[in-house]
Measured scan of single mutants.
Amino acid sequence: HNLTITQGKLFFHYNPKLCLSEIHKMEEVSGTKGRQERNDIALKTNGDQASCENELLKFSYIRTSFDKILLRWEPYWPPDFRDLLGFMLFYKEAPYQNVTEFDGQDACGSNSWTVVDIDPPLRSNDPKSQNHPGWLMRGLKPWTQYAIFVKTLVTFSDERRTYGAKSDIIYVQTDATNPSVPLDPISVSNSSSQIILKWKPPSDPNGNITHYLVFWERQAEDSELFELDYCLKGLKLPSRTWSPPFESEDSQKHNQSEYEDSAGECCSCPKTDSQILKELEESSFRKTFEDYLHNVVFVPRKTSSGTGAEDPRPSRKRRSLGDVGNVTVAVPTVAAFPNTSSTSVPTSPEEHRPFEKVVNKESLVISGLRHFTGYRIELQACNQDTPEERCSVAAYVSARTMPEAKADDIVGPVTHEIFENNVVHLMWQEPKEPNGLIVLYEVSYRRYGDEELHLCVSRKHFALERGCRLRGLSPGNYSVRIRATSLAGNGSWTEPTYFYVTDYLDVPSNIA
């Protein structure tokens, strides 16, 4: 807008934040220059609390790290170098490059900038070799853009010569660093050979998330399962459950009422301010606690030095998902009996873990797994792929695949051998790939016309006998059925096997 004052003059007093240069501009645009008398524009009460600059400061050096910015700028000295009290560095987070010096300023003089007072450097006698002032900004957020400017702080001049310097606002972004852990990993099994893994992005990506790394490792069953005799009275049979499938998407929606109208769909109840505040506090606490764990609990591995020492970490090797089922080394339970199943799973520490690289999504279907087997899954978020990966501390989750139908069934015939004193040795093959492992066998036998009897055969007993022995049988026709019990439950009964026990007292003698 054009402003013209045809008559009258300007009068400025007691404006401590208004620089004289701005008042002189007002004289020019209003056409009143030359009308004012000496005392109409006070030299001592206008701009006496402001830094009124008329020179431009330029930054000469900028260096960044993930949490620091090192700045240096060209030296500046007023005509009387004693008038320079120091520099004021202003900075704040700036997602967009549209910041002005006066953003967030209120009537009390406060604003949204963080201000650092910096002492002037030592003055050199040689004007050509003056030290460049600077400042190291610490405690910054990774991968965050900051708006920065600097200006001088000078003393009051009796001659009211307006001098000083100020830089333009520059924008500097800190470097990326390792992201925080992925949030809320959930693993479920939808079949006997697959596990579905879902997660949420890290709360602090500290860069642009480029991919996720998912490692999985087959877990050995508890050692007590191999040692305890679950045929003993009072000892509860062990059981394991597989990871249940995901709930429906509708039930997972946030901010939804727990109660549904019987007449149909209901609208979600909005969260109160107290609920939102509580969630923010919980989120802040979780982030602080995660940072504490990362800094205190997890110790970084030592990389190899120039002395030739090897990095103890196993090298990563990509495998196809079809090879995942046989990740671990199978060892027989008892070496003397080769027909026992290889369900003991000690994992070799030198073995390469299978892994998958996930790009542009937060889910993965891990296939080719062994049925009813526990897996430990390790999830890392990465925001750099080359020249070397920059990934987060791992988040861990466990899951067990679903049982395989008929995996616990005894394959092959049940054979028998009759000894003296009416002892019958029953023999059968253990299931080759049971659900988890076989903890015991149930032997059901009966003599024709009598009630059915049951015998429990422990895992250890089966390994020693290759089956079991029935003792003290009365003469007669017998039928026997056997079924295995694994961590997933009972298998199917075998087809009945028949044998006849004679009275050993009636056996004919070869003595003449």
Score class of each variant (00 low, 15 high):
Leu280Pro: 15
Val327Arg: 12
Leu487Asp: 09
Ala395Val: 11
Gly489Val: 08
Phe298Ala: 15
Met427Arg: 09
Gln429Arg: 04
Ala381Gly: 06
Tyr445Gln: 02
Glu452Met: 12
Lys233Leu: 14
Glu281Cys: 04
Gly207Pro: 03
Arg376Val: 04
Glu388Met: 09
Asn510Ile: 12
Tyr212Leu: 02
Cys266Tyr: 05
Thr307Glu: 14
Val443Ser: 00
Tyr498Lys: 12
Val480Gly: 02
Leu321Met: 11
Leu235Pro: 06
Asn295His: 03
Ile276Cys: 03
Ser304Glu: 09
Val397Ala: 14
Tyr375Val: 13
Asn422Val: 03
Ala263Leu: 11
Tyr498Trp: 05
Gly207Cys: 01
Arg218Gly: 14
Ile418His: 04
Ser320Trp: 07
Ser479His: 03
Arg319His: 13
Ser239Arg: 10
Gly476Ala: 02
Phe285Ala: 14
Asn206Lys: 11
Ala309Ile: 05
Asp503Arg: 10
Cys468Gln: 06
Leu473Ala: 02
Ser479Lys: 03
Glu404Asp: 10
Ala399Val: 11
Leu369His: 01
Phe246Ala: 03
Gly476Met: 00
Thr373Arg: 04
Glu258Asn: 05
Phe215Met: 08
Tyr448Asp: 11
Phe419Met: 01
His254Glu: 03
Val327Trp: 15
Arg370Ala: 12
Asp222Cys: 13
Ser248Val: 07
Thr401Gly: 01
Gln384Ala: 02
His254Lys: 10
Asp506Phe: 14
Asn490Asp: 04
Asn435Gln: 01
Glu249Cys: 11
Thr288Ser: 06
Arg319Gln: 15
Pro346Ile: 15
Asn477Glu: 04
Val345Trp: 11
Pro387Trp: 12
Arg400Asp: 05
Arg446Trp: 04
Pro238Gly: 13
Glu290Trp: 04
Ser262Trp: 03
Asn206Pro: 02
Arg301Leu: 11
Ser363Phe: 04
Gln252Phe: 14
Tyr498Leu: 05
His294Gly: 09
Pro431Ser: 04
Leu237Asp: 12
Pro434Ser: 10
Arg218Leu: 13
Leu379Gln: 01
Thr303Glu: 09
Thr485Leu: 12
Pro238Leu: 07
His211Tyr: 15
Val501Tyr: 08
Cys266Trp: 14
Glu224Arg: 14
Phe337Val: 09
Glu378Trp: 09
Gly467Asn: 02
Leu455Gln: 09
Asn360Ala: 10
Val393His: 13
Asp311Cys: 03
Cys468Phe: 05
Gln256Glu: 04
Leu237Gln: 10
Thr241Arg: 09
Tyr230Asn: 11
Ala263Trp: 02
Phe226Arg: 13
Gly489Pro: 02
Val358Leu: 05
Gly234Trp: 06
Thr502His: 03
Phe419Arg: 15
Ser363Glu: 07
Pro496Ser: 12
Ser305Phe: 13
Arg301Thr: 14
Lys317Tyr: 09
Arg469Phe: 15
Arg353Pro: 15
Phe462Met: 11
Glu452Phe: 14
Gln219Pro: 09
Ala399Met: 13
Thr303Asp: 08
Ile410Asn: 03
